[in-house]
Nucleic acid binder design. Sequence first.
RNA 1: GGAGAGGUCGCCUAGAGGCCUAGGGCGCCGCACUGGAAAUGCGGUAUGGGGCAACCCAUCGAGGGUUCGAAUCCCUCCCUCUCCGCCA
Length: 446
Amino acid sequence: MSVGLQRLREEPEVIRKGALDKGEDATLVDAALALDARRRVLLGEADARKAERNTVSRQIGEAIKGGAAAGGPEVAALRAASVAAGERISALDVEIGRVDAELEDALLRIPNPADPDVPVGDADSNVTVRTWGELLPRLQPVAGEVGADASTATWERRPHWDVAERLRIFELERGAKIAGSGFPVYRGAGAGLQRALIDFFLTVHIRENGFTEIWPPAVVNAASARGTGQIPDKEDQMYVATRDELYLVPTAEVPVTNLHRDEIFEADELPVRYAAYSPCFRREAGAAGKDTRGILRVHQFDKVEMVLFEKPDASAEALEWMVGRAEDLLRRLGLAYRVLLMATRDMGFVQAKKYDLEVWAPGVERWLEVSSCSNFRDYQARRMAIRHRSAPGARPELVHTLNGSGLALPRVVAAILETYQDPDGSVRVPGPLQASLGTDVLRPPA
RNA sequence: GGAGAGGUCGCCUAGAGGCCUAGGGCGCCGCACUGGAAAUGCGGUAUGGGGCAACCCAUCGAGGGUUCGAAUCCCUCCCUCUCCGCCA
C-alpha cells in the first residue's frame, strides 16, 4: 500500500500533514520526492541509451543483410557502440533498481492521509457517533420481587464463560488439548449458534443488501498477503505453512480483495460488493495476557466480511452504508451497541476513515469490538493495481476499496450469552436464530 | 505424485535470432455508404513509465542467462490442459 507518486508531487503538504496527524514520520515525504526526482533523471538517460542500442542493433542487422561481412570493420564499429551503450545501461539499471527500492520503501512508510472529517488525535479523540439499545447493568433487580430487600432482590449477570460452562456449549480446555490455547471448540448448541449466526449474517447480506457471496480459500500465497499489506507489516500476526509458502488468512479481506488484483473493471461493473464467510487465524503475538478468559481473543474465530470495490466518488457514501448494514445485524439480534468514529492515531496506517462497532456485554460490563469498517480510498488499490474505467475506452484509474466485518462471531456470542441470560442459567435465543437452532431458549442440562 | 502438451494484444491465432516497430481473424469504437439498418470500405482499438510535445522506454506466464540484438536459444519457477496413480 502506498500513497500515489503523482499526488505526492502535486500536494506534498497534504501528505505531510496526514503523516503527522497519524503520528508518523513526515520527513519521508521529502525523502520520497528527492528519490523520485533522481529516479526520473536516471530513467531519462537509461531510456535514451536503450533507444540508442536498439537503433545500432537494427543497423547491424541491416548492414549484414546488405552484404557487409559479419566480422568486417563496419559491423565491428557498430558492435562496439552497442556494447558501450549496453555497459552504460547495465550501470544505470543497477542504480535505478537501488533508487526504486529506496523509493518504494519510503512510500510504504508514508501513511494514507485521513479524510478531512476524521478527528485528529489518539483514542481519547474517538467520537461516539451513536448508541443503540439498553445498556443492561450487571446487577439487576429480580422480576416479581419488588417488595424484597434491595441487597437480595438482585441477581448478578455472569460473564459469558460462566454462562457457557453451565450450558456446556464451549470446550475450551479440550480445544487447548487438541490444538492449543485460544482454539475454542464449540459443542452442541454452541456449535449450532456459530452456524446459525454465519447463516443469518450471510443471508441478510445476500438477499437484502445485494452482496454477492464468496467462499474463499482459508490460505493465500505470498503475493496476496503482500497485496493487502499483511506482509511485511503484519507478518508476525499470521500463521504460515512454510513448506508450501501459504499463509492462513487472518480475515476474508485478504483473499476476497485479492480476487481483483491486477484487474481493470469496465465502466458499468462497479460497484462490486462481496460478502464472505471465512475462519480467521491470528497469532495475536504481543497480546499475551489480554482477554485470556472466554472467547474474547482467540487464535481462530469465524467472521463474515464485507468487501467493496467502488468508484472513487462513491466510496464515502458506501462506507456509511456499510456501517449501517453491520448495525442492522446487531439491532435484529437485539444487542446494544455504539458506533465510534476513530481518530487519526487510533485508526491505523492504511485507513482513510474507520468506524468501529462495539457491542455491550453486561456480564463483564465492557464494550466489545465486533466490527471495524474502513474506507481505504485508493491506497490498497494502488498496491494491488485494481483499476476501473470511468467510461468505455477511458484511461484506467484506481478504484476505492472498503471492507468491514459483518460481523465477527465470538464477541457477538459473548454478548448474546450475557444479554439474554436468565437467573436460572438459561439463555433466550434471539429471534433471527430461533428457526436455525430449533428452539427459543437454551437450558442447562439437568 | 508420474508422463506428455501448452501459456503471445479483450478473445482466437501466426511467429522458430535482425523483414516483430508482434501479423491476421473476431469483438469493440469512429467515419463513409443508407430513409434507418445489415453487408461493405477506411481508420482506430493493451498496460505501465518518461517527456510541453514530436516521440522514447519497458512488458509475448514470472525471474535469471547467452548475444551487438531474444516472443524466438539456455536455466529455474508458476499456472493451464490431457492421461495415469492416490483420494474426501
